[in-house]
Computed example of a mutant assay.
Amino acid sequence: MALTTAPQPTSRPKDPVRTPAKRGSGRVRRREGLAGYVFLSPWLIGLMAITAIPMLLSLYLSFTNYDILSSWSDLEWVGFANYERMFTADPSYWHAVQVTLSFALIAVPLKLAAALAVALLLNRAWRGVGLFRGLFYLPSLLGGSVALAIVWVNMFNRDGAFNSFLSIFGIEGKPWVNDPDWALETLMVLAIWQFGAPMVIFLAGLKQVPVELYEAASVDGAGPVRQFLNITLPMLSPVIFFNLVLETINGFQGFTAAFVLSNGTGGPVDSTLMYTLNLYITGFTELEMGYASAMAWVFLLAIAAITIVLFSTGRFWVHYSDGEDR
């Protein structure tokens, strides 16, 4: 009689999804995700409480006649009346737009030009260059501080240091900050003087330009001007674009220096009435917060439109290191 062996039971592989290790890893990922949201919660709460909710509230107020002193129960819905008044019946609004455009269109290009020129000078290995880089960057650390604006006003008044310097050459000075023809120009000079931040960015960009390109251009007989136009500017165009966007936005947002110079009035004769200063006066001096909210939203949309235009035109002149325009 032949002996037969009973078939051994085959073991089925366990479902990898149902293994304890996989289930444990899923719990770990969920715990890590929860921990991430817990650590992000202060920022998220700040975003909602300080930025998102006030923005939505100001959008609602822009369609009302809210004046700060009134209670919420006294709010009156006026629809687009604030926007209609802004564009058709408020000459001070358009004057503020003109002043702000003049400031941005002159100060921003000159500031970038000064930053690039100094960056080219400091992009050399000579003794003490680190000290000079720090000194040129120092004014940007002060930013839009009130103390710096006060010093600037005192420097350009009738008895200030600038007029004392002019007197050395027999030139009679004037009260620059009190002259409607020159008050805005003093603010432009202050903005241009604070070129340290874009200068540092330009320096970082110049360090990335391959030296071999300049050596090959020199062998071909290209001089410094031609090297600058054909090598430095194209290779530096992404950095120029980055600085242009940032400084344009900052130029339109100028407030502190104009506020200090004019004691919060936009004077003399509204010559320094920047858009943000006019918005502040409307909301907190004249207590027309509904109208000021409408001005703020138009300002936000205008800045967004300018940024879109810059990005749209950038592809025609911004060249990246991989040889492709983006």
Rank of each mutant, 00 (worst) to 15 (best):
L233K: 10
N178T: 03
T4E: 10
W193F: 06
L110G: 14
P54E: 03
W182G: 04
W193C: 02
E84N: 13
D74P: 05
L61Y: 13
L40D: 06
F255L: 14
A6F: 03
L233C: 05
G160Q: 03
R18M: 11
S41G: 07
G205A: 03
S271L: 02
R29K: 11
L61G: 04
T186P: 12
M48Q: 09
G267D: 02
F259Y: 15
V153G: 11
P20V: 08
L135M: 14
V17I: 11
A304I: 09
T4D: 06
W77R: 15
A258W: 01
P42K: 01
V118W: 00
S218M: 07
L122M: 07
G254N: 12
F202A: 03
P198G: 01
T272A: 02
L138G: 05
G170C: 12
W126M: 14
E76C: 06
I68H: 12
L187F: 00
E247A: 03
P20I: 09
A81H: 13
W152H: 08
V17Q: 15
L75F: 10
W126Q: 14
G134L: 00
L142P: 04
W176F: 05
N154D: 11
S164H: 13
P54G: 03
I201S: 06
A114M: 15
S312R: 04
E247N: 08
V209E: 09
A305T: 08
Q98P: 00
I201H: 06
N65E: 05
A222S: 13
A6D: 06
P224M: 01
S62C: 08
D220K: 04
S271C: 03
T285Y: 12
L213V: 06
A292S: 00
N243T: 15
N163D: 10
A204P: 08
R23C: 05
T248K: 01
V239L: 12
I106C: 01
L116G: 10
P20T: 09
F311Y: 04
L301V: 09
L47T: 12
V151G: 06
S62W: 06
P268Y: 02
S102A: 08
N154S: 10
S140H: 09
G251K: 00
G144E: 12
F242D: 09
E324L: 03
M188G: 01
W193H: 06
T100Q: 07
S102G: 07
V151S: 08
G33L: 05
T282E: 09
G223P: 12
L261N: 13
